[in-house]
Design a protein around this nucleic acid. Structure first.
Lengths: 231, 231
DNA sequence: ATAAGTATCTTGGTACGCCATAATACGGCT
DNA sequence: AGCCGTATTATGGCGTACCAAGATACTTAT
């Protein structure tokens, strides 16, 4: 076991990623940032060619994405990129509200100033990204903000759920953050969460997190019903 | 279209389930009710033989269960039945509390007496199962109770999340319900949820649902730490 | 007895082939 | 010309066989 410890120090961190995992990431990413659009068919043999892997891998990847809700399987027709229904999107925002609110409350009750400091740092990254019009950066840092929220109170299961649900509404997210004033209101609402946490105000943090998600949901609904014709 | 209606009546209801789905259900069930124990290795070719299907299917099934959290994949060793650690179990109970509380509150705010009636019916089923010492029945009807809670307010996404998480703690559930007095306390706590819903008391319903899960969590923790040596 | 080499087990991954079904194109018949 | 039945194609569902590489157990030679 001593050997284990010494070995660990110099262990060569191999990628360790299997081909399947790489392919999974590629396809998920392709869906999430719109290379494949909702409703597009995902023909197994075509994906094999595009990814350069065998059908076995492609099938496993499709199964995985199916269980993530990113891909739907039509009987006798095959897999397509899942269509996002407005009602479902609202449900996802609602769940995020419940879980992020919970995490925020727990952070506040923790009474550890380091939490609020870490969140402030993420928040500043978000503001900077908005200023630079770097929208992918906004999304990434927003994710990072919430990941901090969950991981600071050791709630990785809840974080996993939130993450899982979030990829399904990713294109909605990228639309909401481009909305007028969102670059100001969003960070302001998140700052309220951080403030409540710093004050140790559990219910306040909960409410602030709920409010933030609720406003995102409202914007998403407006955007989605406005663009219904395009879909 | 008239033809459709007449045709539907005599349509031969094909299984429509693919072999993969059947195999998935079999393996999931085998894990959930303990035929495969946590930590057991799931050797692909053995599963092929036991299920009577090809490796293609088995691999897809294992991937699927992996993304459900029921199966873990050790690098260079292969899949095993996921081990449940206490902290994770507590997190799952906590999430269930948040979501079931949310659903209960929504049910109460709905102001539809049919909801409470339907829940009462499930509750009676649970009581009967307890009386008959039919533990699988208790679990099934408890699931049904919560499914009603979610589906009555059209929250199938949240129900999906709860369901997903619940299978991971299934063996804990089957232990908690065998606890002394649980056959009385459990239904009593659930009755409080139903009462609050019938009164239209949103916060009360929320709190009652939280309390029920919290007590289940406490029992699970006691059971788990008591049996730690057996694991 | 021990270190080195070897065999075995198992997964990761690939290639190929077969069958069933749905959709489409085609071609013959009236 | 128009319609109906058939052939073809596209595609998913499923199976088999094979190879490479890592891990582990087992020999064997010194």
């Amino acid at each position: 076991m001593n050997d284990d410890l010494r070995g660990a120090a110099i262990r060569v961190e191999r990628p360790a990623k299997t081909l399947r995992e790489l392919a999974l990431d590629k396809v998920r990413e392709a869906i999430v940032n719109g290379y494949f659009r909702p409703g597009d068919r995902l023909v197994e043999r075509d994906l094999c060619a595009q990814l350069g892997v065998s059908r076995t891998i492609v099938r496993e990847v499709l199964r995985h994405l199916e269980s993530e809700g990113l891909v739907a399987n039509l009987p006798n027709k095959g897999p397509i990129v899942a269509l996002l229904d407005l009602g479902e999107a609202k449900q996802i925002y609602e769940i995020r509200g419940a879980l992020e609110g919970m995490a925020a409350r727990l952070c506040a009750e923790q009474g550890n100033p380091a939490i609020a400091d870490a969140l402030d740092k993420s928040l500043q990254d978000i503001r900077n990204s908005y200023q630079d019009r770097d929208m992918p950066g906004v999304l990434a840092h927003t994710s990072s903000f919430y990941q901090t929220l969950f991981s600071m109170v050791d709630r990785h299961v809840a974080w996993g759920v939130v993450n899982l649900l979030t990829v399904r509404i990713n294109h909605l997210r990228s639309m909401t953050i481009k909305t007028e004033n969102r670059g100001v209101q969003g960070p302001a609402q998140m700052a309220r969460i951080v403030d409540a946490i710093r004050r140790g105000d559990g219910p306040g943090a909960y409410q602030a997190a709920m409010d933030h998600v609720a406003s995102a949901s409202a914007i998403a609904e407006a955007v989605l019903s406005g663009q219904q014709s395009i879909d």
